[in-house]
Simulated scan of single mutants.
Amino acid sequence: MPGLAAFLAVLAAQPAPAADFTGTAGAGGVGGSALEVTAGTAFTNALGSVVGGGAGGDGGSGGSGGNDGTVGQGGAGVVMAGNGQTLVNGGLIAGGLDGNGSVGARAVTITGNDNRLELQPGGSFEGEIVATGTDNAFLLGGSSTGEFDNDALRSSLQGFASFQKTDTGTWSLTGSDSQAWTVAQGTLKVAGSVGSATVTGGRIGGTGRLGSLTMGSGRSRLAIRSGR
């Protein structure tokens, strides 16, 4: 069939269509949490130890004219997803970095209720510490001496119902915040300013300022000038 042969010859001579490489690449994976504390348990991160969330994955490269994939977020250092848990940090707890290595995830995420997060001297966090449940408490504990930047309450600590000084050690509060503190044990020295303090045990001192002070009926001691 001459006509068909001629048609096929013309068709074969046509250039092949250009390949389309303009699609968007896939997103990078999200880094995993380093630790999840389950309901009713306690975990202590000792001095010198590091708990860090996993790094996010890098997004894939898009084709010519296409978009690169989004980078994955880093994982939280510790997730407390249950109720009635205790996390004691005397080392470093850090959120993982994203796929670009530039944005850090939360150091601690608390989604349950009635949990206790205790910071001990020598401990630190890298990343936000966010509590979304109810009646979660942030504690300054331990038996030695530590210093806590009170300004971190505004920039890093979010969603906590109470702030407490526990155990026999001495903590100094620097910086300023309007938060209310409860002193149950040991000594709390105010070097900056706080909104209020309630002393149910132990001692409060320093040269800073208090918006208000309440002394309990137990064995409490006062050695501070009230704010003016």
Rank of each mutant, 00 (worst) to 15 (best):
M1W: 08
M1S: 15
M1Y: 10
L4E: 15
P15I: 13
P15E: 15
P17F: 04
A18Y: 04
A19W: 13
A19V: 15
G23S: 13
T24S: 12
A25G: 14
G26S: 10
A27T: 01
A27M: 01
G32S: 10
A34E: 04
A34M: 03
A34R: 03
E36C: 03
V37I: 10
G40V: 04
A42D: 10
A42V: 08
F43K: 14
T44Q: 14
S49L: 13
G52S: 11
A55H: 12
D58A: 13
G60Q: 05
G63W: 01
S64L: 07
G66H: 05
G69S: 00
V71S: 11
V71A: 11
V71P: 01
G72C: 03
G72Q: 03
G77R: 07
G77K: 06
G77Q: 06
M80V: 11
A81M: 04
G82Q: 04
N83W: 00
Q85W: 00
Q85L: 05
Q85T: 10
L87F: 06
V88Q: 14
V88I: 12
V88M: 11
G90D: 12
I93S: 14
A94L: 01
A94V: 01
G95D: 00
G96I: 00
L97I: 00
G99D: 03
N100R: 04
N100D: 09
G101Q: 06
A105S: 14
R106H: 09
R106W: 00
T109H: 05
T111R: 13
T111N: 14
T111I: 10
L117H: 04
E118R: 10
P121T: 04
S124N: 10
S124L: 08
V130S: 12
T132N: 14
N136L: 00
N136K: 06
N136E: 02
A137C: 09
L139M: 09
L140W: 05
S144F: 07
S144N: 11
T145P: 01
E147V: 12
F148S: 07
F148M: 07
N150E: 09
L153C: 08
S155I: 03
L157P: 03
L157T: 02
Q158F: 08
F163D: 10
K165V: 01
G169F: 04
W171P: 03
S172A: 15
S172M: 09
G175P: 09
T182Q: 05
V183M: 05
V183C: 05
Q185G: 09
L188I: 06
V190C: 06
A191H: 06
S193H: 05
V194F: 07
V194D: 03
S196A: 15
S196T: 11
A197R: 02
T198E: 07
T200D: 12
R203M: 13
I204N: 04
T207S: 12
L210Y: 06
S217L: 08
S217F: 02
R225N: 15
G227C: 08
R228M: 09
